[in-house]
Design a binder for these strands. Structure first.
Lengths: 140, 140
DNA sequence: TAGAATACCTAGTAGCATACTAGGATATCT
DNA sequence: AGATATCCTAGTATGCTACTAGGTATTCTA
């Protein structure tokens, strides 16, 4: 039950873009610098976020990325889901993956686990995360 | 956020042993047959469960495994935790893993995710799982 | 006491996913 | 024109997962 760097870096990237919402588009160069991540790797993570409709890009000099919707309309589930497989067990979303489903009690249990983790992630919006971030910086 | 076969097979094994609680020890051969898993792989999964104090073994002919405690005192968190790394992100349990913790708002968020998944798993006991299993078999 | 049946232990290994890097094409601003 | 961006495809090392193999130790039964 581990999260990959994709989901984590993606969340950091989205938070960064949200924090700079007012200041215009955030370029990958800035983003990579602030978040101490490689541009090339970020480049790979940012594309799925774009095709998921969470950010939009502005090409050319002075370009970068901005949120495609209000921070209130973007939650962590959407972010993570765009970047990694959130299904803990294959049989949950692919009934053919296992022939034992009908008699398997653990199936129900994993379903429950999946549902509740999704609920937690979905309950956290970018607005929440921005708030937390600002509060955290104030405490330093 | 995927679960490995270790945790899943381990849960199935524990449930199987619990279902046969009255009938005496369950051998790996029976277990492997019923669960359609390889003996050799099960052998590897069963050891951590034993050292975690969830089952005890009886060696020699006629031997096998039985629960080390009452099914009510064993929950899914204990089972899964014995078999795989449940920490979604390293920094949660190892502060040196990342130097950004103090200013990282996503840290708090992952912590929340971790805590709640652990709570779900901890709330499911072997007794619950046995009940579900029996009910499911009745419905067939 | 032999032998069958079991658990226990250590070492391998193929395949796959992760976490990147590289190089170039395309678009836009100044 | 040139600088600064995004966009796209391919490659790759490393580590983890999901096993398999082979042998040892223990205990029951005939």
């Amino acid at each position: 039950m581990r999260m990959s760097t994709r989901g984590r870096y993606g969340a950091r990237a989205m938070l960064d873009i949200a924090l700079n919402y007012e200041k215009g588009p955030v370029s990958l160069r800035e983003l990579a610098q602030r978040q101490e991540l490689s541009i090339k790797y970020l480049e790979q993570l940012i594309q799925p976020l774009r095709t998921a409709g969470l950010i939009k890009s502005i090409r050319g000099a002075g370009g970068g990325y901005t949120l495609a919707r209000l921070p209130d309309d973007i939650n962590l589930l959407q972010i993570v889901q765009a970047l990694e497989n959130l299904t803990p067990v294959d049989c949950l979303n692919n009934p053919e993956a296992c022939s034992r489903i009908s008699k398997c009690a653990t199936y129900d249990v994993w379903k429950e686990v999946q549902d509740s983790t999704r609920n937690i992630l979905a309950s956290l919006t970018l607005t929440d995360m921005v708030e937390r971030q600002l509060q955290k910086l104030n405490e330093l």
